[in-house]
Amino acid sequence: MTSYQTNAEILRKEQITGDIFRLTLNCPEIADQARPGQFIMLKASAKNTPFLRRPFSVHQTSINGRVQVLFKVLGKGTEYLASCTSGTLLSVVGPLGRGFTLPQKGTSVCLIGGGMGIAPLFFLAKRLSRHHDHYTSIKVMLGAATAKELLTLKSDFEQLGMPVEMATDDGSAGHHGFVTDLVQSTIGENPPWAFYTCGPHPMMKKIALLCREKDCFCEASLETMMACGIGACLGCVIPRPLPTESGEQYFHVCKDGPVFDAGDILWK
């Protein structure tokens, strides 16, 4: 797999809500190579602080060489990115990691995103929309704290012709509660299902266990602390359920993931 290090110009910065932003970067090689579920490493500082790059799932790409990332301001790195203006150059490494496996023809597809975990699912949705008729149905379920975090993203999915169900913690849009509550009722209809999920760990765990119980295909995109993103530092590990023959006890999220078969993960 080819990946690149490049200085990408910020072409557009959108403020989705108070602390959620979307950056459009000009990086044609990465846009061309990226597959849904893969990530990029962004240098989120002008100097040495924050010291390490930050991993971001690719939110979407375009044929004219653009890559988008979606993020919430949580620390110094995202603060810096939110403060950048159009025209700023950001150092980008990518695309990296193992992305989603596309569903087989004839499956019912369900994308379940929580919070910023929605980011990579939109890229997947775009890819699936190219062959919408291959799938029995495509459902999208989005969860967030409150309605305003979801509305822009909801309409993005709807423009692809995909119905969106919402769940919010405060009940300001859709179901008042967790997005996982919506999955329970879906999983019985029109098998076989392929579930794709990204979001908070407890959310993905619940979906993974449900899918295990019903024997459904399920992939989850995980997040860990990462230093390099390219398989050199070995910092981003999670335990494997069983050691490999050669004695490996851990997955490296940057290489073996970030997308995993949910059945391979030891959900805590």
Binding site: T49, F51, M225, A227, L234, C236, V237, I238, G247, Y250
Partner: peptide, 17 residues
């Protein structure tokens, strides 16, 4: 072969890791 330590294995600090 050595499996290495359990995570978290890395942490960012001021001016390093």
């Amino acid at each position: 072969p050595r499996p290495g330590n359990p995570p978290p294995r890395i942490v960012e600090t001021e001016g390093g890791m």
